[in-house]
């Protein structure tokens, strides 16, 4: 569905991605793991075609995205089929009401009954009670859900989600994980929360601190690979003092994955 070839990106002298090759097949649910600043958000923005690579390319349905975006018809199709949820929900919200915000996409694409579609998706993510509120007055978690609904209302084929649980409380996080598992879309979910990885997808990509993909495979296989986890700065060690006060040792913390 979407692939990258030797994708590289830099902000001036600062390299944010250093030669990434990946392929996402239709229907896959993939988790993108990595510590802060490793290039996860940059990769998602490159895949969504909102920033251009320094070198290499992104291929969507066999066509280079940055070439395709110059073609009006192709751009329309791409924007409808690929949705990007930003880490900071405020970046996406600018309409007067939640209803207008969710209906914005359908209206831009000239779809029928934009309002009805928006109401339907607002209901599915539990936002019926705030439809007339201004998005900027909502809690961070509610804003995240408005953004998600405003993408889902277009029924995209590929969803790129940047830290979708970062603003959510534990109950909402659990709800969102279940919700995402039930979606038919291809998902690429970026997170630095290792404990959610196995819940969010079956395949896992790990971006290392060298800004390359250092693991691409089964999520569960990753949990025993302390070398990769440590290289990606996803686990920590610290000194343990046992009850007898004498024995001290270090081990990796990977949280409970079961």
């Amino acid at each position: 569905m979407i692939a990258t070839e030797q994708l590289r990106h830099a902000y001036g002298p600062t390299v944010t991605l250093a030669g990434v090759d990946l392929v996402l097949a239709a229907g896959q649910k993939v988790v993108l793991l990595g510590s802060n600043g490793c290039g996860k958000s940059t990769l998602l923005k490159l895949l969504a075609g909102v920033i251009a690579p320094s070198s290499g390319r992104v291929l969507y349905a066999g066509r280079a995205v940055h070439e395709g975006l110059r073609d009006k018809g192709w751009r329309r199709r791409f924007r409808r089929e690929v949705g990007l949820l930003f880490q900071n929900p405020d970046a996406m919200l600018f309409n007067a009401t939640v209803l207008d915000e969710i209906a914005f996409g359908p209206r831009q694409h000239g779809l029928d009954s934009a309002g009805d579609r928006a109401r339907d998706w607002a209901g599915r993510v539990g936002l019926d009670a705030v439809l007339d509120r201004a998005p900027w007055t909502l809690s961070a978690g509610q804003k995240q859900l408005v953004c998600l609904a405003s993408l889902l209302v277009l029924e995209p084929r590929l969803l790129l989600l940047d830290e979708p649980t970062s603003a959510l409380d534990p109950r909402s996080t659990g709800w969102l994980v279940d919700f995402l598992q039930d979606l038919p879309q291809t998902l690429l979910v970026a997170t630095h929360n290792l404990s959610l990885a196995s819940e969010l997808g079956e395949r896992c990509l790990v971006v290392g601190e060298d800004h390359t993909i250092i693991h691409d495979g089964d999520v569960l296989a990753l949990r025993g690979d302390h070398e990769v986890l440590a290289r990606a700065n996803l686990v920590h060690t610290h000194r343990h003092r046992h009850r007898d006060g004498e024995v001290q040792h270090r081990h990796y913390h990977t949280h409970d994955w079961d």
């Binding site: 969504a48 909102v50 009006k72 924007r79 930003f86 919200l93 600018f94 309409n95 831009q108």
Partner: peptide, 27 residues
């Protein structure tokens, strides 16, 4: 840049003046 990219990602074509104005004001 994130605000600009978010609008870009949600629109199939260049937005009209009312939307651009609304987006600019909200930003």
């Amino acid at each position: 840049a994130d605000f600009r990219h978010a609008l870009d990602a949600r629109t199939p074509a260049r937005v009209g003046p009312p939307t651009a104005l609304r987006h600019g004001a909200a930003t």
